[in-house]
């Protein structure tokens, strides 16, 4: 049975990188003694795949991974057993049976993600950024530099900013996150600071991922649903 797990990562554990987070969950699953499926060979590994890597230093209320179990286990039991094995800062909030097959895997589904950007003390833009926000979004093109293997390339990120507004004194963004159009929140912020005519200070804000979505709409009319809903077996 394939299950999709949703978990949170907050506090000091935000400094644990993506690969180490994967290792952490593999060990947690082993401790929970859930009947995980493994690959064969001399060094078998657990069949587990993460939806979207989270940068070091970012917190998240919605991380996802898929795993394969060799027996059917009720989802609330999976959540409970994993939570018994969590270190402070990690919490499993939900599990759902996911559709089999590659097309349905969490990583392939990712289309967008929500972030909350909170300015660190004294690091918010000096100017009236709130008033300028609509103006920033009204630009037909927002060009940013992207480093690629072939050198620096200019990219228009405007189409990838689905939403951007003030929230709790910080900024809420919904950004494109598929492998083809993945947009980092700090890229957007850098462009915003530049638009305001300010230099973005180092470590200016704390980023927290709030949700990750799949797109179940059409090209003209996207319909974002959370990975958990998207994955659910019909």
């Amino acid at each position: 049975m394939k299950v999709r797990i949703k978990f949170t990562k907050t506090g000091p554990v935000k400094f644990i990188g993506h690969l180490d987070t994967m290792r952490y969950f593999q060990k947690a699953v082993r401790r929970s003694e859930l009947p995980a499926a493994f690959s064969g060979g001399y060094s078998p590994h657990m069949i587990m795949s993460f939806a979207a890597p989270l940068g070091v230093g970012m917190e998240s209320l919605a991380e996802y991974f898929d795993m394969e179990l060799t027996e059917k286990i009720p989802c609330d039991e999976i959540v409970e057993r994993l939570n018994r094995e969590m270190a402070d800062g990690f919490s499993v909030i939900q599990a759902a049976v996911a559709a089999e097959g590659k097309a349905g895997n969490a990583m392939a589904l990712v289309a967008a993600a929500d972030y909350l950007i909170t300015f660190r003390e004294g690091k918010a833009p000096a100017g009236a950024w709130l008033e300028k926000l609509p103006e920033f979004l009204n630009q037909p093109v927002i060009e940013t530099e992207k480093e690629t293997k072939k050198g620096v390339r200019l990219i228009d990120i405007r189409p990838f900013i689905y939403e951007m507004k003030e929230l709790d004194g910080g900024i809420f963004v919904r950004l494109a996150s598929a492998s083809s159009n993945y947009t980092r929140p700090d890229t957007v912020m850098k462009a915003f600071y530049a638009f305001l005519g300010e230099e973005m200070p180092e470590y200016a804000f704390q980023t927290r991922r709030l949700e990750v979505y799949a797109d179940q709409g059409t090209e003209e009319a996207p319909r974002f649903v959370t990975l958990l809903t998207a994955g659910e077996q019909k």
């Binding site: 554990v13 990188g17 470590y203």
Partner: peptide
Amino acid sequence: NDEILLQVDKAARYIGGEV
């Protein structure tokens, strides 16, 4: 603080809290 931990290599060396 976060600023220091974001500057150094492998910040998780210094946070404790392991299982």
